[in-house]
Write a protein that binds this DNA or RNA. Structure first.
Lengths: 206, 206
DNA sequence: TTTCGACCTTTCAAGTAAAATAGTCGAAAT
DNA sequence: ATTTCGACTATTTTACTTGAAAGGTCGAAA
């Protein structure tokens, strides 16, 4: 994130707000331009395409999330607590992304393919974060030393899958907060079981 | 399955074969009829709609699966082994369903809504099966007595989600067997961890 | 360096007509 | 009484057209 002129961030913020309300496809470049009081053509001075602008919005969100988690990692609390907090903040993040209209259930196929790359990059970052937590757990003696990379990936994939599965079940286009509450409880239970499972020698969780 | 005239099962089998090759929407009632050497109108003597015929095909598959699992339950092996086998056979079942063209990634939205009910019913049956396994584990003293319904559902939802998540990642329309192999390994690891996790007091798995 | 008006190009929504297919019905065959 | 089917209707899908909307370009101006 080297290049961040004031205008750029202003545009990104306006775009973010509009996408959040109406979703990617319903927002036109003219609307975004008029929100920042520019001509449409001027947007293309900063962003080569609408798609790139959208990606910039998402990347900014992702960076905020990663930053937040890295602060969490610095704190002096148990790995168990860190895992729980991670999962909670992660769900917050996705909930917000959905509100942003990005991952909305009926989002166009076009968007999904556009985000394959972005999501994949995000997954790589998540793996790094989770690995850090697990490694710290090993050092502290809180986690089993035999924990391997496969297990780390599985942890993330189970999280991703649980979210997918739960949201898929929902009928209408509306994602009520209560669905997220229920999902959050499931995830907490999952973390408990997983934590115990990878750590079966120990008999008490922190 | 009370009413099962020979003709009915013959039609279902022909339909199953065609759907497996071409997918629901690409198969016409005339094709099915000609495969069983009947006129199209005759099909409607046995099945009121194409949709009902399709549902019959699926239901039959589901019943075969449930039957297979119930045989598994009768066997005198550890609950741990039963869980593993369950997950394996479950994946076999879905792999076959996908070959059947049903759950194919690019399957029409129409089919999905048509199957909401069917899948939901299948989930209820799965819950029953898994609950039986867990209850047996409690009786045997192999599993923690405190295991509750929430945990059973979570187990299933994690399984469902892991499958979704893994298959979603795949690029092309082709589902290679190697993908299933990889998914299968993940599921086995998952069962190991989950089993230990719900059973943290004990220190050795069977 | 930054902005924009005018312009070009592509995409999308709505409409339409023709073809394919699901589904009906009464009569015929067994 | 049960089962079959030819001929019919109703519905859905597909391919196509078209005009408007939106994405994107460019050269000139601030």
């Amino acid at each position: 994130m080297p290049e961040n002129s004031l205008k750029e961030t202003e545009i990104i913020e306006a775009a973010r707000s509009l996408f959040a309300h109406y979703g990617y496809s319903k927002v036109t470049m003219e609307e975004i331009a008029s929100d920042v009081e520019m001509g449409k053509a001027s947007l293309y001075y900063y962003f080569p395409t609408k798609e790139e602008l959208f990606k910039s919005v998402i990347k900014k969100e992702q960076n905020l999330f990663v930053e937040e988690i890295e602060n969490l990692l610095k704190q002096d609390i148990s790995v168990y607590k860190k895992l729980k907090t991670y999962v909670n903040k992660r769900l917050d993040y996705f909930q917000q992304l959905v509100n942003l209209g990005t991952l909305h259930i009926q989002s166009a196929v076009h968007i999904k393919s556009m985000f394959k790359g972005l999501l994949h990059e995000f997954e790589k970052q998540e793996i790094i974060l989770i690995r850090k937590i697990f490694e710290e757990g090993k050092l502290r003696g809180e986690l089993d030393k035999k924990l391997n990379e496969k297990t780390i990936c599985l942890f993330l994939h189970l999280l991703q899958g649980l979210r997918l599965q739960t949201l898929k079940t929902i009928n209408g286009p509306r994602l009520e907060n209560e669905h997220y509450d229920s999902l959050r409880k499931d995830m907490m239970l999952f973390v408990d079981i997983f934590y115990k499972g990878i750590n079966a020698q120990k008999d008490e969780i922190n």
